[in-house]
Design a protein around this nucleic acid. Structure first.
Lengths: 343, 343
DNA sequence: ACGCAAACTTTACGCGCGCAAAAAATGTTT
DNA sequence: AAACATTTTTTGCGCGCGTAAAGTTTGCGT
């Protein structure tokens, strides 16, 4: 194989006995040429393994076959898992995924979006940093590239948003906790980086109100994305100061909860529902590690698969209808209660 | 700003009052033009925000300014963290990182390498699947693109390898465990996907032998990358069957250890060193979640920062010396003992 | 003011492919 | 076998930029 070096489509057309424009058609869509010619091409392809120059191909195209996937913090297994699902769907749809992480930094997020435009992607799936995002950068980007937001909403931005129904899911876990014991106190970061955190805060207050309870909130200091460390430090402090407002703690997310469990274990507070347990702790998200905490964490699952599928579907639809499928659509998925041993 | 739409460098040269070849020089290296012209260009740049077409730029170039970063499983926080570090270093060096995950699948890894070649990257940092990798695909890739391996070695492949010294690190933790209690049994997967696992198995046996102990190995079934689930299931089974060879367990990696801790907690076995503790459990890697396990996991840290820096440095050196810096180099970093409460 | 090197402009070609139009070949239908 | 539809070939231009060569200007030292 690979006798003569084939340097471009012209030369490949020669060794192949087929005209260049036909080859061009073939490489854009193998199904668009007659079966007999397709076979001839593919036979030659095995002998010479020629591939069209990606850069030459995309030079004139309005957009490439790339789809950007941007998440705020890829080292968070929640986003890693989401990205993994979405990547697969993007590949199956015949596109090339470009995975990017803002690493928690708004400036970096803006840089990423900037660089992404150079790639002329067919579209972008963006989970923005949220509040911290450079609104103008995101807005400019969305105007230039078909974009679907997921996980975290920026009102009015992009063509669609797919996320979780925090009102529903928080109500679900609050009700469960109330039904099975004391009403929960809400454990969260005082200055969360995640915009869902604010929604959950409000959802908690509303859910408690519906139950006739006053909200009890425990806010911990700390910045950045080291949620476990922040949760652990805050919990240690609260436990030492005997400042827990309730023996039932609902954490704003599972990573904070894991930190809380770590602190409780260290302080000798047994977490769970049985006799001899001092605390109940619940989380939110069904984070990949929640089921391996000690004790295993009761939480509300976000439907990873559904969010991934809906996000990808929305973008793909946007792409082949030539975007602007009408007005902006918002899709929220319900959470599912995951009962384990911690609450 | 942005009065007339500037569609290409030609038009930008017009509104800018500078010839196109000079602009071309500027965009390749802003420092290569006289300060006064640089200012004129940058002034015009603020009014028109023109950017050279990425595809046109790379069409003739031998390679782009992209650097590939390929990991076997990005949803594993160990690789996510490593990738995060490397990405930053790559950006600082003036390159564009392309992050890719094989998602544990050798065929996908081969596809990734294949697709990466189209991008004509300046170089690639590759943490291969290891044993499972398609050797021929990797070999063909390394021959075509300057490549540095990290984390997992493929003998003879690529221009360099950077990883951890498993012999040293395993000996470190074995010695520690022997010095402070019973010699450890080794807990691992029967068919590990990670090639480091085999090195650690051997290192464990050697370290035990040096101590005059026979190795005690507990191998668990399971395939894939759900290490916590596999560790948990295996540990539950072993505990129920009272088949633990020792009350001290050294896990092949922290994720298995987290699974083990989960099982021990569920079975009411207190893990730690104090009185009333039934088991000691140690891990390896200082995985991001190890410090939040209950109890916190004693382990051997891999030096994330050092591995990242050395890998990036090796590749960058390879790139600007025009590769082949002599013969293949192997760099191993020592682990550091991280004493926590679990052992 | 002179001389010279560095920087810039002008001109022109090439990269590899997309794409359009017209002509030719092939395949299908009646 | 004729008529038609589909596919392929031929021809040729264009994309946006890299780059080389030759000529011109600029900056700086003496």
């Amino acid at each position: 194989m690979d006798d003569a070096k084939v340097r471009n489509m012209e030369e490949f057309a020669a060794v192949c006995g087929i005209s260049r424009p036909t080859l061009s058609k073939y490489f854009q869509d193998p199904g668009s040429v007659r079966a007999s010619t397709r076979e001839r091409i593919e036979a030659a392809l095995e002998r010479h393994d020629f591939r069209p120059n990606l850069y030459a191909v995309n030079q004139n195209r309005r957009h490439s076959k790339a789809i950007g996937i941007v998440v705020p913090y890829l080292a968070d297994p929640f986003f890693a898992e989401l990205a993994r699902n979405i990547e697969t769907l993007v590949i199956d749809a015949g596109f090339r995924p470009i995975l990017l992480s803002a690493h928690g930094d708004p400036a970096h997020e803006a840089d990423i979006l900037d660089g992404l435009r150079d790639l002329k992607p067919a579209g972008v799936l963006l989970a923005p940093l949220g509040r911290a995002s450079d609104r103008r950068a995101v807005e400019a980007f969305c105007a230039a590239v078909p974009t679907v937001l997921f996980d975290s909403n920026l009102v009015g931005q992009a063509e669609a948003f797919i996320g979780s129904d925090n009102d529903q899911s928080i109500a679900l876990i609050v009700d469960h906790l109330c039904d099975t014991g004391e009403p929960p106190a809400f454990f969260e970061m005082a200055s969360p980086v995640n915009p869902n955190a604010f929604k959950r805060r409000e959802a908690y207050a509303a859910a408690m109100a519906r139950r006739g309870h006053a909200p009890m909130t425990l806010q911990v200091e700390g910045r950045g994305w080291d949620f476990e460390a922040i949760g652990r430090a805050g919990a240690l402090k609260a436990i030492e100061a005997r400042a827990l407002p309730s023996d039932t703690i609902l954490c704003s997310n599972d990573r904070l909860a894991v930190g809380f469990l770590s602190a409780a274990y260290e302080k000798g507070l047994r977490v769970g529902v049985g006799a001899g347990c001092a605390l109940r702790v619940a989380g939110h998200d069904d984070h990949p590690y929640a089921r391996f905490a000690s004790p295993r964490l009761t939480t509300v699952s976000q439907d990873y698969a559904a969010i991934s599928r809906a996000s990808a579907a929305a973008l793909l639809n946007l792409i082949d209808t030539g975007r602007r499928a009408g007005r902006r659509e918002t899709t929220l998925f319900a959470g599912r209660l995951v009962r384990r041993e911690s609450a």
